[in-house]
Computed example of a mutant assay.
Amino acid sequence: MPEAVPRLIERFPGHLTDVAGLRVGHHTLPGAPTGCSVVLCPPGGAVCGADVRGAAPGTRETDLLHSDNLVDRVHALLLSGGSAFGLDAAGGVMRWLEAQGHGLPVGPARVPIVPAAVLFDLWLAPTARPDAAAGWAACEAASSQPEAEGCVGAGTGATVGKLFGIGRAMKGGIGSASLQAHGVTVAAMVAVNAIGDVIDPATGQPLAGARTGDGMALQHSARSIVQGLAVQVPATGSATTLGIVATDAVLTKPQANRLATVAHDGLARSINPVHTASDGDTLFALATGTAAAAPPMSVLGTLAAEVVARAVLNAVRAATGLPGLPAWRELG
């Protein structure tokens, strides 16, 4: 008999702020399970790309990031709860950056470039949504110190495992991880709000997701679907996992877009099912360009997928439960 694989408890190391020059700030709405998270780039901005894989996205300025479009640097990125309402928070980030004198010079003005993506947490907070004031507050809270994880910022209202109804779901959250290898740092921060389960790639077993009818164990959604168990598909746009992968490597805009694409492999390893019709899964890639090393894109892509998968696991390990929505630490 093979030895049982031990249940991992310790978080993977690292944070998005391990990439020098980046600052992260969370704002959680008082008394409401929703919030937003901002990543502030160095004053000159950072090269950015994006890849939207889910079929129900809520995004802002992602078209600008296409490789054949003009602007290649952004000044901040925003991840927010509140579904499409949460895109309002980007306006507060723009105004905060403008007040600091940051932005793209356009004639007599500076226009901060702030791509954003939102997740659906209106199950828990139907009338509470991050707005411009929340975006401003997240900027005020931004720091180069290791960012908080779990049920904060964009991860506050995150849930996972909704294929058999919201009543059998579990709490998600926001998590980070980083790696230093080949002379560069690659890090990720992911807000995990998936329709599917969060899977430990080392064991193939779910850490958090749809629970059995008695609520005491995990259903293993993908396996149950293969076996023919009927699902209760949530409404379109009712989930979404959002993330940012960042590096200090020098990248062009097309390379940043490619890095965002490959980083989705990390979601595929750690969430199953993923990229569904009800998810708007979106990953951004940032490159500050301060590292002297220049590893091949195959190396950077490998590191990016790994830190994304690790960040997903850290998100559910750090999450805390709500009534009727247990967290990983409580169900185990």
Rank of each mutant, 00 (worst) to 15 (best):
S221W: 04
R168W: 00
G243R: 09
G324T: 04
T127W: 07
A202W: 00
V198D: 08
L78V: 14
V52C: 10
D51T: 09
G82L: 09
L259E: 03
A239F: 04
G155Q: 02
R95Y: 00
Q227R: 14
V5T: 15
D214M: 08
A128R: 06
Q227I: 00
A292T: 15
K253L: 11
P57F: 11
P30F: 07
T320V: 14
S37H: 11
P30Q: 01
A141Y: 13
W123K: 13
V198T: 14
L322V: 07
N257F: 05
G237F: 01
E3Y: 04
S143G: 12
N272H: 12
A133V: 10
R60V: 00
K162Y: 13
G196T: 05
G92L: 08
P254G: 12
G35A: 08
A291C: 05
P146Y: 11
V186W: 02
L259K: 14
L286T: 08
G172I: 07
A304H: 07
A55T: 02
A187L: 02
A177S: 15
L22D: 05
K171H: 05
R269H: 14
T320L: 06
A32R: 15
Q219Y: 00
T28A: 01
Q145T: 13
V186S: 01
I199M: 14
V74C: 12
C151H: 02
S67F: 00
R73H: 14
S298Q: 11
D88L: 10
P254K: 10
A235N: 05
H75S: 14
R95I: 01
R211Y: 09
G14I: 03
W136N: 01
G183Q: 13
G35M: 05
V5F: 05
A309D: 06
V19M: 11
G107M: 09
P273D: 03
V160F: 08
L97V: 05
A285F: 07
A217M: 03
G49W: 10
D197E: 07
L179Q: 12
A109Q: 11
A222V: 13
L322Y: 13
R11P: 06
L77V: 15
G324V: 06
G92T: 06
F12L: 10
G82I: 11
D72T: 15
A177V: 01
G289H: 09
D51M: 12
V111C: 12
G91Q: 10
D72H: 15
V118G: 00
H15M: 02
W136D: 09
G175M: 10
L163W: 14
M189C: 03
T212E: 11
A263V: 05
V93N: 14
S67H: 08
V250K: 08
R269E: 03
P13H: 05
V245A: 03
A309F: 03
L300M: 05
A194F: 12
L79P: 08
G14M: 02
A116W: 12
G58H: 14
S298N: 01
V316D: 09
A217L: 01
A202R: 12
P105F: 14
L242D: 13
L97M: 11
R23N: 00
N272E: 15
L229S: 02
P326K: 03
H102D: 05
